[in-house]
Write a protein that binds this DNA or RNA. Structure first.
Length: 517
RNA sequence: GGCCCGUUCGUCUAAGGGCUAGGACACCACCCUUUCACGGUGGUGAUACGGGUUCGAAUCCCGUACGGGCUACCA
């Protein structure tokens, strides 16, 4: 249900950002987040920033950053500012920003003001704490106000001990000190007012032992330094929003905080859409093919599956948003025009592959052939068909496009124009085949070759005249002719096919088929 | 377990207190088509449950149930 919320007056320019972590493929939810960011920015004449969150060394996957950029390029959602494009607010990689000491100084500031503290606990100690305090009612104990004084940190230790540890260069992290009884609330552009009791939120790590910031610190610091005005992300971030709000309050003031919107999740058959769902149910979940360099596992993408980028962003936009009318087919420009965050749904949307294909079908029918001619040529060349005559090619594609849902369908629907069918559906003809029909076609070969006006209509008339002369119903002859030319019971009107094939080829295919029937 | 978010046809959704709860995908039937599709017409099909507020509730409030998310030195 759309909320009636007015946007805060936009004193500063609209700047939104997408901040993926380069840890693998770009899934549907990720692309939709980019899309909504992009649409919102463009609608308000703002900027769209791509920031790379490569702060987790253990999960970083080589090549993923370029992959993400390629996906955005294919979908037509290239950012204004990014590591690839420059801009005035770089660096755009968190690893590079860490090197500049940007995060450290803000962590220090928080500690000075008593909003954060050093924690020296080792992973083993944390593990032990979780085991020791685990009960039936509380299966996952948190590092929070109830337990922090039982741990080793600058709050529980004396200042001498703390200083000694610091001087000795002990392994340490910086944690936020969550207030014990405060209610943190903020206005989400989609959900309205959301509030949290800080006593129930844990002391999240802000700066890791390796000096890298966690997402929590990075997102706040970067949004501030990059002057981000609106921050849109998936709903899975909602539970950590109070940490971010508090950080904004401590560091930069709530007035400077961007407007938040937590986008509904895209769901698979059971729960949040995952890579596994795609493999299990046979549909793509990534924008483009992604091969994990560690496991060599390939996850198929929408692009390679034969989706048009126009259809892809269209179907994604409509998964959780609509403009209030019955319009469903939107170009990117139309989306920019119609989009509003207030009309984004609060509830998660289950992905429906059948509807996704419908969108693609609509776009194949709608778009002029030349928009995707190259992609089809690639599909055909993969089956060792090469195109020489572009004009002819375009005519053929226009003839069959209504019958194609995904790009590879063109191979089935148009392949026979370039390569005689390998197999003829003999079973569809045999039972009713007669010597009279054979005679008819032997004569028809001559008709074709001598046809002066070689157009579909003229050829059809000639075909019917000859049929009448032979005392056979034309209907009984059309299916055999079709099988001769295309191999099966499919395709556009048969005389259109014959004309595009040309006299010689049509005659040759009939002649060959007669040797089989 | 705790916290947060959510709940209208199978799916995506419209309806911001007031027509018979509308559309799209999928499904079914018919028409068009001497192929397969496209297209056209029609059909099956939903307000989770219980209370309240109100002349009137899908809509506002409360509770219950159910679903999802989070609960890492991952994002």
């Amino acid at each position: 249900m759309p909320q009636q919320l007015s946007l805060q007056p936009m004193s500063k320019k609209v700047r939104v950002r997408f901040a993926p972590s380069p840890t693998g493929g770009l899934h549907l939810g990720g692309v939709r987040t980019v899309l909504y960011n992009y649409l919102f920015a463009k609608k308000h004449g703002g900027d769209f920033v791509l920031r790379i969150e490569d702060t987790d060394q253990t999960r970083y996957v080589a090549g993923a950053e370029e992959y993400i950029f390629n996906c955005l390029q294919w979908a037509g959602l290239v950012p204004d500012e990014s590591p690839m494009h420059g801009g005035n607010f770089g660096p755009y990689r968190q690893s590079e920003r860490k090197a500049a000491g940007i995060y450290q100084q803000y962590a220090d500031k928080l500690i000075e003001q008593g909003y954060a503290y050093y924690a020296f606990d080792t992973p083993e100690e944390l593990e032990k704490m979780r085991m020791d305090y685990k009960t039936e009612e509380n299966p996952s104990p948190q590092y929070d106000h109830k337990l922090r004084m039982k741990m080793r940190n600058s709050l529980s230790l004396s200042s001498e001990e703390t200083n000694q540890l610091l001087a000795a260069g002990a392994r340490k992290v910086v944690r936020i000190k969550m207030p014990q009884n405060e209610t943190v609330s903020f206005t989400d552009m989609i959900r309205g007012e959301v509030s949290f009791d800080t006593a129930l939120v844990d002391d999240k790590v802000l700066l890791k032992a390796d000096g890298m910031p966690t997402y929590h610190l990075a997102v706040v610091v970067d949004d501030y330094l990059m002057q981000i005005s609106h921050a849109f992300r998936g709903e899975e971030w909602l539970p950590s929003a109070p940490v971010h709000v508090l950080l904004w309050k401590y560091l930069f003031g709530l007035e400077a905080m961007p407007q938040w919107a937590h986008l509904p999740l895209i769901l698979g058959p059971n729960g949040k859409l995952s890579k596994r769902d795609g493999a299990k149910y046979g549909f793509p979940v990534f924008a483009m093919n992604w091969t994990d360099p560690k496991t060599n596992e390939l996850t198929e993408g929408f692009k390679e599956k034969g989706f048009l980028p126009e259809a892809f962003i269209n179907l994604l936009a409509l998964l959780g948003w609509n403009d209030g009318t019955e319009k469903e087919i939107f170009s990117k420009e139309e989306l920019v025009d119609a989009f509003s965050m207030e009309r984004v749904h609060a509830a998660g949307a289950k992905f429906d592959y059948e509807k996704a294909k419908w969108f693609n079908h609509e776009w194949i029918k709608k778009l002029p052939i030349h928009n995707y001619q190259l992609a089809i040529m690639n599909e055909l060349e993969a089956t060792s068909i090469s195109i020489t005559d572009n004009l002819q090619f375009e005519k053929i594609l226009n003839l069959v496009k209504d019958r194609c849902t995904l790009l590879p369908d063109f191979v089935q629907q148009a392949g026979f124009f370039f390569k005689a069918p390998q197999q003829l559906d003999v079973a569809a003809v045999k039972p009713k085949w007669t010597d009279e029909k054979k005679t008819f076609f032997e004569t028809f070969i001559e008709t074709v070759l001598q046809q002066a006006d070689f157009t579909p209509l003229a050829l059809e008339n000639a075909f019917k005249e000859l049929a009448a002369a032979n005392n056979i119903k034309p209907g009984e002859l059309q299916l055999p002719l079709r099988i001769m030319l295309v191999g099966g019971k499919f395709g556009p009107p048969v005389f259109d096919i014959a004309v595009l094939l040309g006299k010689e080829e049509t005659a040759a295919r009939i002649k060959y088929a007669l040797t089989i029937f």
